[in-house]
Amino acid sequence: MKKLTHLNEEGRAKMVDVSEKPETTRTAIAHSSIEVSQQLYEQITNNQMKKGDVLAVAQVAGIMAAKKTWDIIPMCHPIPLKGIDLSFNWLQEDNRWILNIQSTVKTKGHTGVEMEALTAASVAALTVYDMCKAVDKGLIIGKTYLIEKTGGTSGRDYRR
Rank of each mutant, 00 (worst) to 15 (best):
M75V: 14
M75Q: 13
S32A: 15
S103I: 04
A121V: 03
K68W: 04
G11L: 13
Y41S: 05
V128P: 06
K82H: 05
K68V: 09
P22N: 11
S19T: 15
N8P: 13
V18R: 03
T127N: 08
N100R: 10
V123D: 02
I84V: 15
T5I: 14
V105E: 02
R12S: 14
L118R: 00
K21H: 06
F88G: 11
A124S: 09
A117F: 02
A120E: 04
M15A: 09
Q43L: 14
L86S: 05
L40A: 01
L126H: 10
A66D: 06
A58R: 06
I72Y: 12
D17P: 07
M15I: 15
H77T: 02
L118V: 04
I63P: 02
A117C: 12
Q38I: 02
V128C: 11
R26W: 01
L91F: 11
S37I: 00
G62Y: 04
W90D: 10
D71L: 14
T45F: 00
G109F: 00
P74Q: 08
H31D: 09
K50P: 00
A13W: 01
I84L: 13
E114I: 06
L99Y: 07
S87D: 13
T27R: 15
L81P: 00
K21S: 11
F88A: 12
T111L: 04
E10M: 14
A58D: 05
S33P: 05
A125V: 06
E35S: 15
L40F: 01
L99F: 08
D71F: 08
Q102L: 11
L126K: 07
K108M: 11
E114K: 03
S19E: 11
I29P: 00
T24C: 03
K67A: 12
P80I: 11
P78L: 11
V123K: 02
A61D: 03
V105G: 02
T24D: 02
